[in-house]
Each structure stands twice: as structure tokens, then as C-alpha cells.
Design a protein around this nucleic acid. Structure first.
Length: 822
DNA sequence: CGACTTGATGTTTTT
DNA sequence: CATCAAGTCG
């Protein structure tokens, strides 16, 4: 997508980079100030939809254009890969190749990049593995079992959360132990678990997500000379979503913006780094200029340590900082903003800030109360179809929910309605067992110390290596103080069965072979510092392919008689295809680069927004995005606010911000929906409308079916609803029924014609090779009779467009819809 | 050692 | 409900 000819040639700009004035053209005065201000510290308080990304990208472009910075002196940090990709894209749009050399990345990728480069200093292999939370849990589970800590009530998830929280505070086992009450056996045990966990990661040369930040901070603090390299390099640091930074990230920013002392400047100069020109009169290099953007009303990551004080106290941390407020919203209609303002206004202890727009009121918000989650989903599907027919592109429609579990009902209905959708962020692909298996092979090659990966592949596919053998290898490794991998190589001397020994040796050889593929001239033993063999002749896909064939993993899946293994084999093939794409897109990249990308950018496949599909995602994932039409679903007590957070200090306020984030994603149409009963792990429970719903002025919402209406329907509701009506259910039903919602009820008919709405979803069925043609009459289990108007699609994805006599237009997947020809 | 059964168990949000 | 852990038999 690069239209640029030659950045070195002045006339080479082809994508018409704006002239000096053009960068601030069309910006309001505040935005303009945020773009043009030059100084050590700038805080941009940017309300939702106030053009924050625009300001940031224009500011970056402006810094380059005014010669205040070279591209390589800029570090822009975002929280998500998606945000980073978007910013990169938009900067490139402004600058073309002039953007090359900038670091625009997430906290985590930036840290990985630094850590891989400086790994030696902190005794880490540059090919260190990045453990995800599933890996962490496996290790903790093992430790807890070894220590019999489960009898004391320790669970992997609980310990994981606590360790993560501590690491976000830059604590380690020792510093925690110093402050803990070590007379408490529970605390002693926790410290022991923490210690062992840290030791295992270190032994495996692995870091978890939190370590990526924490170790970088440690690196900078322990090695000022190393830190100085980055401090003098990055002269302009910009941080997005600053309200979501935790203490570790805050400290990282602090380290990076520290001035470089005169002695270090001299030392660097004497080593041939020309840095003196950067130094001021005192001989030190002043700290980088820092720009942070944030909105405390959108702080939704307290659970992972985000500290709202970081932004609130910015002016104190950086005296003399300029503060710019962006309050004009360019995204949403006034009705949507009024609802958002009304909701967030209920959070006390916040600086009052009111979003406004020049756009006009727009349409009212649409409300709907389903009897069940499926009913709610059906409403959403129908509305999406209506929007689509009225000309709204599927890709400009999004459905938000609080918990991932809520996708189930939505997906069931969407599949049935033949609605093109995709679940964003759920990124389950790399979490599938077979993919993790294949990845473990690659990891074992890249980082031979990673015992976790080795254990994973040891008996995958089945090689007859059981727990007994694994233990034997582990003890042998421990006794001889060698790595697990070396123990495998020495398996012949362990006196194991001949078959088992042969299997282990074969695997060890396979891995050695693959490692040799990567490092042509030198033996694999010593990790090449930062020199990915210049002529990287071997591709990631070649290595993977070699491993898959050599190990028999793919064959085992293909020849299995378990029908699910067929799909698994396809997934592995898909992974292979992805490595090929990776090789093509990144010709100079190494295996480790690929592994890093998978660990950190697993949601990369979400990036190609070209597909015309409706997006489903959690409210958390939704932050920073915007859509023409937005559905916020499951607005019920217990879900939003979520049960667990409702009782936590600050919980309800944070959940309210989450709701606020959801609302403010909508440009034109906003739908708020809930269900009167919701199935939560097996049982259906009565659900109450969320307290936040009441905070929206009633005149802003047009209820298609209000909570009152849904509740007063009586006998025709689903059994679960009638059988167990909690006292609280009636409270909403009656009190609200009588005043606000009944108004809507009396003026709005529940549903056009067929007021009987489908409540139940039958199990997935299979109509075999039922064929339908335009003109056929059919009967649908829920919608009644109708006439086929059109048939599209092929094979199992054949879709019948049906005009039902009472339920209107629907699209149905012929293969699985509950229909019959009549 | 591996395939199979039953039984318990846990449940927010993410890099 | 749905995955995961432990237990049993070949």
C-alpha cells in the first residue's frame, strides 16, 4: 500500500503530505494546540470521540515536519495491537515512508523488542519464550500440587491473579516477603509458590506478560548505561490510553523520560556515539518530551492494575505540563451523547466533563427486553438485517457484551439467520490444543530451555511416553544439573525401555535437526546475539513443515478415527499457511519473530476489516473503536455490573465506565438490550434490568419492548420465568411498569404482527440435502409459513431468503434451519 | 501406557 | 454446560 517513491528525494512524496498548515487544517482550537504545543510534557484529556487519534497522528507528523524529531526518535505506545496498527496506518497516510523507523507499538511489543536486544545483560536468552496465562496456569498448577498447597486453599487462578497484581506493582517474591506477615503459614506458602514460579520461568528462560514490562524496568534501573541508549534515542514519547497504565508501565515511562547524566554522555561519546549535540549546557541530555492522552471516564482496566491516579496526578508528576481538554465530540449524535453523559455523571469524584456535538439529536436509542438471551439475540439479528437492508454495511455494525460466554446465544441465532459475523478478540485459534502443540514444537526449537514446551510435545503425538518416563527424565536432569532437553539427548543411558528410548532420541534428533536448519554456519549452542543469519535462507514455514512431518503430528491427526481430528488437522494446516504468509510478508524475520508475533499479536487476524461482517466483541475490546450502529447487550444486574465486581470497591463505578465506553462507540444508531432470564451455567435465572439503564433519561429511549412489558406478559412467557419469579423481579416489573415503561408499553405495540416471539432454540439439526427453490412454500418452527423468494450460496452454506406470512423477511441456512417444505 | 468412564468443579474483563 | 481431573479396565 505504499505509494511513496523515494523518501530521500525531496520531490519523492507522492501521497501529497499536507503542507505545514494542512496538518492543523480542520482542527478545532484545542486540537490544534495539542498538535502544535512543544514542551517537556503535555496531557491531552480527550473525551470519547473527540478526535484523539487524529490529534496524536497529526502531532507526530508535525514533529517530523517541523524538524523537531527524526522518525527514529519517536516512540508511540498504545495498549492494543489494533490501536497500534491503526495509528501506524494513519501516520503512514500522512507521511508515507517518512514514517519508517518510528516505534509505534504496544507496551508489550516495545518491551520485547528491547529485552531481546539486551537479554544478555539480565541473564536471559534472546530467544526467551513468552508465556501466556494458560502456560502460567499449568506451571502454577504443578507447583501447587508439588507443595500440597491446594489443601490450604490455593488455586492456580487465585495465585495467578495475586502474582500478576504484585508484578504490576514491580514486586517480586523477596520484596513481598519482606513486607508480609511471615508468621502466617498461608503467606509463607504463597511466597514459596511465588519463588518457585519465578525460578521455573528463569530456568526455562521464559517471561510472562507482566515480566515483559517489569523486567524492562529492572533492566533500565540496574543498567543505567543501557537505559541511556534508549533515553537518548527516544526524544518524543507519546502514550495513548494513559488512564489504563499500571504502576509498572508508569515506571517504564518514567525511566524512558529520565535525563542522561553528563558522565554517561561523556562515556557514550567516547565510545563513538555522537550524542553530545543532544546535551544541554549542563552536559546532560534532557529527558524526552512526553505526551499522554487519556480519559479517566474510560478507565476500565483497574482489574489488571491500571491506576487512575497516573493520569489524575500527571500535572504533579510533571510540573509545568500543559493540559489540553478535548470535549467536542465528532462521532455521535446528541441523543447518544446525552445518554452517555447522563450515565457517567453518576460517577462521583470525577472532573465534570460534558461531551457535546454539533451534529444534532439524531434518532432515539432503541431499547428491547427479550424473554431469553435467544430472544434478545433474535431481536438483534432482525434489527441488523433491517439496518443492512436500509443500506448500512455489515462491517459498520457491532454487538458488544460483558462476558465472552454471551457470544453463544448470539452466534447460534446469527448462524441460523445466515448473518455474516466474526467474533473479535476471542482469538481462540492459537488457544486450540493442536495449535499449541504445533507451536510448542517451534518453541522447543527456538528456546531449548523451555521445559514446558518440551513436556507438551514429548508425547504428542502419542509415542508411548507416559508420566513415569517424564519423571525419570526430569529427575535425571535435576541430578546431573543439565537441562531437560539435554537429558533427552542422553536418554540412551537411562535404562528405559527400548521403544521409549528410541522415541525420545528420535524427538531430540528432530529438534536438533530443525535448530540446525535455522543456523547454517555455527552450531546452535550459542544464541546469536542479535544477528539473525543475514541470508535467512530457511523460512519459518520450512521449519514447521519439517517438524510436523518428522514428528508425525499431522499424520496422526489425519489418520485418527476421531472425527474431530479432521478439523484439528485442518487447523494445523491453517497454521502452516499462516507461517507461509508470515514468511512472505516478513522476508527478513526469524522464527523468534514469528513466535513473538503470535504471543503478542494473536488478534492480528482481526485486523483485516475488509470483510463485510458484523463484529462481536466484549465491551473491553470495543474501546477505541466506533461503528455506525452499536448493540450493547445483556444490560442486566449481575452482568453489567457484573456480579463479582458489584461488591468490589470501585467496581460499580468501573462497570459504569464500561457501559459508557460501549455507548460512546456508536455514531448514529444505538441499541440497548437485555433479557429477562439468562442461562448461567446450566440454570436459567431471572435477570433484572441494570441499574445503569435507569440513569438514562427516558425520553431518549424508544422501547420496542420494555422491561415492564416483558415482565407483565404473564402466562405466555417461558417456564423458567414463571416458575421462579424472585421478589425483586416484580419490583422492577411493577414500579417501573406503572410509571415510565408502561408509557412506552401503551404507545408502542410489542411487535408488529406476530407478537409471539420465538423463545426457544432447538438443537442443531440437519436437513440433509433438502433443496429449495424460489417459489417453494415452507414451514418454520418459529416463524410459521412463508415463501422462498431467493436461494443463494453453495453447498452447506446455501441460504434461503424467505418471506414469511407473519414474521417478515428472513434469511435461513437451509441445511440447519428448523424448516420443512410444504 | 492408553482409551474410556464417571465425577466434580468452576465462572469477568486482557496484553 | 462443558471442561477438566481422577479412576478403571484392557
Amino acid at each position: 500500500m505504499t505509494l511513496i517513491l523515494d523518501p530521500d528525494e525531496p520531490g519523492g512524496w507522492s501521497d501529497a503530505p499536507p503542507a505545514a498548515s494542512a496538518l492543523v487544517d480542520g482542527l478545532n482550537p484545542e486540537q490544534r494546540e495539542a498538535v502544535e504545543y512543544r514542551g517537556p510534557a503535555l496531557l491531552i484529556v480527550a473525551g470519547a470521540g473527540s478526535g484523539k487519534t487524529r490529534v496524536l497522528t497529526h502531532r507526530i507528523a508535525g514533529l517530523l515536519e517541523s524538524r523537531d524529531a527524526w522518525p527514529s526518535q519517536i516512540l508511540a505506545i498504545t495498549f492494543t495491537n489494533k490501536a497500534a496498527a491503526e495509528m501506524r496506518e494513519r501516520v503512514r497516510h500522512l507521511l508515507g515512508d517518512g514514517a519508517d523507523g518510528m516505534w509505534i507499538s504496544t507496551f508489550h511489543s516495545a518491551c520485547v523488542r528491547i529485552l531481546r536486544r539486551e537479554a544478555d545483560a539480565i541473564g536471559l536468552s534472546s530467544t526467551f519464550t513468552i508465556y501466556d496465562s494458560a502456560d502460567t496456569r499449568v506451571i502454577l498448577k504443578r507447583i501447587i500440587k508439588d507443595l500440597d498447597a491446594d489443601t490450604m486453599g490455593f488455586t492456580p487462578a487465585g495465585v495467578q491473579g495475586k502474582i500478576s497484581k504484585l508484578k504490576n506493582e514491580l514486586a517480586d517474591a523477596d520484596s513481598y516477603a519482606r513486607n508480609a506477615n511471615m508468621n502466617d503459614p498461608h503467606e509463607v506458602m504463597f511466597v514459596e509458590i511465588f519463588r518457585q514460579y519465578a525460578r521455573r520461568l528463569r530456568d526455562a528462560s521464559a517471561l510472562d506478560f507482566d515480566d515483559l514490562i517489569g523486567e524492562t524496568v529492572y533492566l533500565f534501573r540496574a543498567f543505567p548505561k543501557t537505559a541511556a541508549l534508549y533515553q537518548r534515542r527516544f526524544r518524543h514519547i507519546l502514550v495513548d490510553e494513559y488512564q489504563d497504565t499500571n504502576h509498572a508501565q508508569y515506571s517504564l515511562i518514567h525511566e524512558l523520560t529520565r535525563p542522561v547524566a553528563p558522565e554517561l554522555v561523556d562515556e557514550m561519546e567516547s565510545q563513538g556515539l555522537h550524542v553530545r549535540s543532544l546535551a544541554d549546557s549542563s552536559g546532560s541530555i534532557p529527558g524526552a518530551s512526553l505526551t499522554v492522552v487519556g480519559d479517566s471516564d474510560q478507565s476500565i482496566y483497574a482489574f489488571r492494575g491500571a491506576d487512575i491516579r497516573n493520569i489524575v496526578e500527571f500535572e504533579r508528576d510533571f510540573p509545568g505540563a500543559r493540559v489540553v481538554l478535548l470535549e467536542q465530540n465528532y462521532r455521535s449524535t446528541q441523543n447518544i451523547l446525552s445518554a452517555a453523559n447522563a450515565v457517567i455523571g453518576n460517577n462521583f469524584d470525577r472532573k465534570d466533563k460534558k461531551l457535546w456535538t454539533a451534529v444534532g439529536d439524531g434518532e432515539k436509542i432503541t431499547g428491547y427486553t427479550g424473554y431469553t438471551a435467544h430472544d434478545e439475540a433474535q431481536f438483534i439479528a432482525d434489527e441488523i438485517e433491517a439496518l443492512h437492508r436500509s443500506g448500512v454495511d455489515y462491517r459498520d455494525i457491532a454487538v458488544f457484551y460483558r462476558t465472552n460466554a454471551q457470544t453463544r446465544a448470539l452466534e447460534e441465532i446469527f448462524v441460523r439467520s445466515a448473518l455474516p459475523y466474526r467474533v473479535v478478540g476471542g482469538t481462540k485459534f492459537y488457544e486450540r490444543a493442536e495449535i499449541k502443540d504445533a507451536m510448542a514444537y517451534l518453541i522447543s526449537v527456538a528456546n531449548p530451555l523451555d521445559e514446558l514446551a518440551l513436556r507438551r510435545i514429548l508425547n504428542t503425538p502419542k509415542r508411548g511416553i507416559g508420566p513415569a518416563t517424564v519423571t525419570a527424565l526430569a529427575t535425571f536432569a535435576e541430578q546431573n544439573e543439565i537441562s531437560f532437553r539435554q537429558a533427552m539427548r542422553a536418554a540412551a543411558g537411562l535404562g528405559l525401555g527400548p521403544k521409549v528410548t528410541a522415541a525420545i532420541t528420535a524427538l531430540a534428533n528432530l529438534l536438533d535437526e530443525a535448530a540446525l536448519m535455522l543456523v547454517p554456519p555455527t552450531p546452535p549452542a550459542d544464541a546469536p546475539a542479535d544477528a539473525p543469519a543475514p541470508a535467512s535462507s530457511v523460512k519459518v514455514s520450512d521449519v514447521l513443515s519439517h517438524l510436523l512431518t518428522g514428528s508425525g503430528l499431522l499424520d496422526a491427526l489425519r489418520n485418527s478415527r476421531d472425527p474431530q481430528d479432521e478439523a484439528r488437522a485442518e487447523n494445523v494446516d491453517e497454521l502452516l499457511a499462516q507461517t507461509k504468509d508470515f514468511d512472505k510478508d516478513n522476508p527478513d524475520a526469524t522464527l523468534v519473530d514469528f513466535l513473538t508475533q503470535v504471543s503478542l499479536v494473536a488478534a492480528a487476524d482481526d485486523l483485516d476489516d475488509a470483510s463485510g461482517t458484523v463484529s462481536l466483541m466484549t465491551l473491553h475490546t470495543a474501546k477505541g473503536l466506533e461503528y455506525h450502529a452499536v448493540f450493547v447487550t445483556g444490560i442486566e444486574e449481575g452482568l453489567l455490573p457484573h456480579q463479582i465486581s458489584a461488591s468490589e470497591p470501585g467496581g460499580p463505578a468501573e462497570e459504569r465506565r464500561l457501559f459508557y465506553v460501549g455507548i460512546t462507540r456508536a455514531r448514529v444508531r444505538l441499541y440497548l438490550s437485555l433479557a429477562m432470564s439468562r442461562a448461567q451455567f446450566g440454570e436459567t435465572n431471572v435477570a433484572l434490568p441494570s441499574r445503569y439503564l435507569q440513569e438514562i433519561p427516558e425520553e431518549l429511549i424508544d422501547w420496542k419492548q420494555s422491561p415492564g412489558m416483558a415482565n407483565s406478559r404473564g402466562g405466555t412467557g417461558p417456564r423458567a420465568l414463571n416458575a421462579r419469579r424472585q421478589p425483586g423481579a416484580d419490583r422492577w416489573g411493577s414500579s417501573y411498569n406503572s410509571d415510565r415503561f408502561s408509557v412506552a408499553a401503551s404507545t408502542k405495540p410489542a411487535r408488529a404482527a406476530g407478537a409471539e416471539w420465538p423463545n426457544k432454540v432447538t438443537a442443531v439439526r440437519d436437513n440433509g440435502d433438502l433443496t429449495l427453490d424460489a417459489g417453494d412454500r415452507i414451514r418454520h418452527a418459529d416463524f410459521g409459513e412463508g415463501r422462498v423468494t431467493q436461494v443463494t450460496g453453495e453447498g452447506t452454506k446455501k441460504v434461503a431468503h424467505v418471506s414469511f406470512d407473519s414474521a417478515g423477511q428472513k434469511k435461513l441456512l437451509i441445511k440447519i434451519a428448523p424448516i420443512e417444505k410444504i
